[in-house]
Simulated scan of single mutants.
Amino acid sequence: MSEPFYKNGLKFGCKRCSFCCGHSPGFVYLSLRDLTELRTFLKMSVTEFVSKYCRWADYYYGEQVLALLEKKNYDCILWENGCSCYSARPVQCSTYPFWSWMIKDQATWDECAQDCPGMRNEEGKLWTFEEIEANKNAYDANKPLTRAQVEKMLNEEKLC
């Protein structure tokens, strides 16, 4: 197996353009970790957070999973001239742009970089192979909550 194209690291430095946080349709899928961090940060119950900030998104094999809402202009519901929950942001957001599908090869990285000035930022931080792999692994391990899992949590919360 050949070595990854990023074996010597990649430069990335966010330019705060917010392109990854909106401007076009997309999904920020929420895992249990994400839901817990966000609702704790906002001091909300599961029921309150889900009803105010979430929607159901179609996922693989016909399953529906929890995702953040988007505003009418496609910006993330948590975007307010910056992430309003930055310290509690979802893993999907904190691992960008080192998602497994984005770093699968140089061509894909270069194509994605067309929309992200941070990926073309030569003054950006040189991310090491180990840092990139850690982000990729965190992204891959971060599984979104299914409708059944969330409904169970909501029912348990009602019983308390």
Score class of each variant (00 low, 15 high):
V28K: 01
E48G: 06
F49S: 00
S45N: 08
C17I: 11
S24K: 15
P25R: 09
E48W: 08
L35A: 05
S45Q: 11
T36A: 06
C17K: 04
G26Y: 04
L42F: 07
L32R: 06
C17M: 09
R33L: 10
C14H: 05
K11H: 15
S24C: 07
Y29Q: 14
L35H: 05
H23G: 15
S24E: 14
T47K: 15
K15Y: 04
C21M: 01
F27M: 09
Y29L: 10
G26N: 05
G13Y: 09
S18A: 15
V46M: 06
D34Y: 01
H23I: 05
T36N: 14
F41R: 15
C21W: 04
S24T: 15
C21G: 08
H23F: 13
H23E: 15
R39W: 04
S31L: 09
P25V: 05
G26R: 07
K52V: 10
C17D: 11
P25H: 12
P25W: 13
K43D: 11
R33P: 00
K11E: 05
K43I: 08
L35N: 04
V28A: 04
F27Q: 07
K15E: 14
K15V: 12
F49Y: 13
V46E: 13
L42G: 07
C20Y: 11
Y29R: 14
V50I: 13
Y53C: 02
T36M: 04
S51T: 13
T47Q: 15
D34W: 02
P25E: 14
K15C: 06
F27V: 12
